[in-house]
Design a protein around this nucleic acid. Structure first.
Lengths: 161, 161
DNA sequence: CTATCCAGTCTAATAATAAAACTAAAGTTG
DNA sequence: CAACTTTAGTTTTATTATTAGACTGGATAG
């Protein structure tokens, strides 16, 4: 009964997850970023059930993350492609890949490598920076509720003091 | 039947999602990053069922993303805190929040703001950069399968040509 | 000491996922 | 072009996850 929706939460993370947070969604997007374009590609790469894949794909298309485009090779079957909205998820994917690589490595070594095509080297860790490129230490990054957003009860406790 | 596991996939993204990709996990982590520490905080903030919350929390503790620590205020109830592994998810959360803010904004305006405590301004978009801070355009970022990783069938097709 | 709160567990109902069989259109082979 | 195979799904049935709500035993407040 995964019926609860995040879409009304006044939190950007919740609403992002509403669109791409289902169990398979980000892996499908990863596959597209790595060159998959057709139903069978996802199916074979992920070992996902056909019906689950079908509903995840239509959800992603409805959400504007993927779109169906005419096949590049002239086939009558449409292909799936990232929209601008979908391509813009790249920082999320890179951050996830780098975290997984660091904290949950596979015995056989890293698998999805993310490289700088200029230098052919592994990308440095994606990390918050100022406009000028200076790295911001996490202590100086604040995640806070915006003006007008609902008050968080555990912060009220603190604010009382 | 969400019984299929990603943990054996030779992909860093899949193994990251195995640990934090369940429907509620990243929202729980967001709450901790925003100051939540106790069961009731998550419950009230998220509107999640008690039993689902309990199993997500133990999953996150077992996965080493959260840990139970003695309460700071002397209460006999333990608190949940991020481990180093958990804190290291900050880039993922920031990337998600910024994407959601851009592509799925709430009518009432942004909610979870991420700011630079030094300047009190919104963080610039987290984005791949070189060591020197130079932004890397997406065209120059390659997500590729590493040496030894299983061959992807749709790439074989291309490689044949 | 009593009432309430807290952090869960247990039970029953419902929704999502999985596996497998099926289908219609597309593509391939001889 | 006729027969066979592939593709992109849909349908059906079984299983698992999530939910809401009742319940519990220990902590806390009055």
């Amino acid at each position: 009964m995964k019926t609860k929706s995040f879409s009304e939460m006044q939190c950007s993370i919740a609403r992002a997850l509403e669109q791409v947070g289902s169990w398979w969604s980000l892996l499908i997007i990863r596959d597209v970023m790595m060159g998959a374009r057709r139903f069978k590609h996802f199916e074979q790469s992920l070992g996902i059930a056909k019906n689950t894949l079908a509903s995840r794909l239509t959800q992603l298309v409805d959400g504007g993350v993927l779109e169906k485009v005419p096949a590049a090779d002239g086939s009558a079957f449409d292909e799936y492609a990232l929209t601008e909205r979908g391509r813009d998820l790249a920082p999320v994917m890179i951050a996830l890949a780098q975290w997984g690589d660091k904290w949950a490595p596979h015995k056989k070594g890293p698998s999805t490598e993310i490289i700088d095509a200029e230098t052919a080297e592994k990308l440095p860790r994606i990390w918050p920076r100022r406009d000028d490129g200076e790295i911001i230490p996490l202590r100086e990054v604040r995640m806070k509720r915006a003006r007008g957003a609902p008050r968080l009860n555990w912060l009220e406790e603190k604010e009382k003091n």
